[in-house]
Simulated scan of single mutants.
Amino acid sequence: MQKGKVSVVVPIYKVEMYLNRCLDSIINQTYSDLEIILVDDGSPDSCGEIADDYQAEDDRIKVFHKKNGGLSDARNYGMKHVTSEYIMFVDSDDWLDLNMIELMVNNMVDYQADVVQSAFYYAHDDYLLYDTRSYPPEENVVVMEKKQLMHELVDNKRVKNFAWGKLYKTNLIKDIPFKKGVFFEDVFWAHKVMDRVNTYVLLNKPFYNYYQRDDSIVAAYSLKNLDFIRGLKERHQFIQHNYPELVNQSYRMLLKANLEHYYLLLLNRKKDSTGYNRNKIKNYIEKNHNQFIISARNEHQLYRQLMFFRIHPYLNLFYLAVRKSIRKVKIIPANKGLKRINL
C-alpha cells in the first residue's frame, strides 16, 4: 500500500564531522519512499563534496549549492523543491533512528493527522538523555486537537518550537516561510503552523537524536540570542489576538525568557558593555509587571525571581546562585526525569 512520499530537507553548513552520520541515518530508513533534499548553504568546508558523493550513489538525493544565507534561507530554499506529500526537516548534525519515518508515516495515515511529532534524545558523544517527564514511555501515542496543541506549544514541554522531529503534510506548511536573518527561527514559525492543525499526533518514544555540542551556552552567547525574546513577543501578539485564554501562559514564558537572558547578559557584560540590552529587558519587565505577577502567581520559584528582580536584578542572580549551590549539596533535590542511556 502506497502511503505517500516523504521529502527530507537537510540544510548543511560547516558540519563535515557529523554529516555522514546524519545522511546515513536517512538513506537507511526502513521507509524507502523518500525525496532527500540537501541544501549546501555555502559551507566553506567539505560538506558540499560529501553531499555530491551521496547524490552520486543514491538517486533519491537532490543536492543544491547556494550562497550562504543562514538556516532559515536554506530551509526555505529546500521547501521550494519539495514534490512529496509529506515533509520533514533534519538538522545536519543530528540523526534519526532507522525506523523513525516509517512509524511517523504510519501514524500520520492511521490518525489522519496534519503533523506527527516524535519524542527525542538529547544526544551527547557517549550518552543519550531522554525526558521521561514530558514523554512518559508508557503513554505511547497522544492525539491533540488545535486548542490543546497551542496550549502545549506555549508551555514548551511536550510540544517544542523545533521544526525538526516532526512530519508535516506539505500543503500545510509550504506557504509559511521561515523568518530570515534571525536566530531561533522556529519560534517565529511554529505557532503559524500549529494554528492550521486539526489533528496532531505525539509519539512519546524518542526516534530523533538532537546532538548537543560541547560549547557552553554562556561562552557561546551573543546578542543574536535575544532573537528568542523577539520571537516570543511576536508569538505573544498572535496569542493575544487568536487564543486569549493562553495569554497568561504566554506572559509566563516571556517572563522566564527575559529573566534568563538578563542573567546571561550579566555573565557576558563585555557583549553588552553599555548595558543597553539589560536595560531594555528591565524596562520591559517593569512595563508588564502586573501581567507578570498574575502569570507567575502559581509558579513559586518564578514568582520569587520576579520579586527579587524588582528589588534589584543582582538579588535575583544571588538567589539563583544560592539555589544552585544548595542543589549541589542535595538539600534541594535536583530535577528528576532525565533518563541517561550510555552508548
Rank of each mutant, 00 (worst) to 15 (best):
D175N: 13
D175S: 12
D175I: 07
I176M: 00
F178N: 03
G181Q: 04
G181H: 05
V182M: 02
F183G: 02
F184A: 10
E185I: 12
D186V: 01
A190K: 06
K192H: 08
K192I: 09
V193C: 05
D195F: 13
Y200S: 01
V201T: 00
V201Y: 07
K205G: 01
K205C: 01
K205D: 10
P206W: 03
P206D: 03
F207S: 04
F207A: 06
F207C: 02
Y208V: 10
N209W: 01
Q212M: 15
Q212N: 12
Q212Y: 10
Q212W: 06
R213V: 15
D214V: 07
D215I: 14
I217D: 13
A219I: 12
A219R: 12
A220R: 15
Y221D: 05
S222E: 12
S222T: 15
L223K: 00
L223W: 03
L223V: 05
K224T: 04
N225W: 05
D227A: 00
D227W: 00
F228W: 09
L232C: 00
K233V: 15
K233N: 14
E234T: 01
R235K: 09
R235L: 06
R235E: 13
Q237S: 04
Q237K: 06
I239F: 03
Q240N: 11
H241S: 08
H241E: 08
E245T: 08
V247D: 07
N248L: 12
Y251N: 08
Y251C: 05
R252K: 15
A257R: 02
N258W: 12
E260F: 11
Y263P: 01
L264H: 13
L265F: 05
L265K: 03
L265T: 02
L266M: 12
N268K: 02
N268E: 01
K270R: 09
K270C: 00
K271L: 10
K271W: 00
T274K: 09
G275Q: 06
Y276D: 07
N279R: 15
N279I: 09
K282L: 09
K282V: 06
K282I: 09
K282M: 07
N283G: 11
I285R: 00
I285C: 03
I285S: 00
K287Y: 09
H289V: 10
H289T: 14
F292E: 03
F292G: 04
S295L: 01
A296E: 13
R297D: 12
N298C: 10
L302S: 13
Y303K: 15
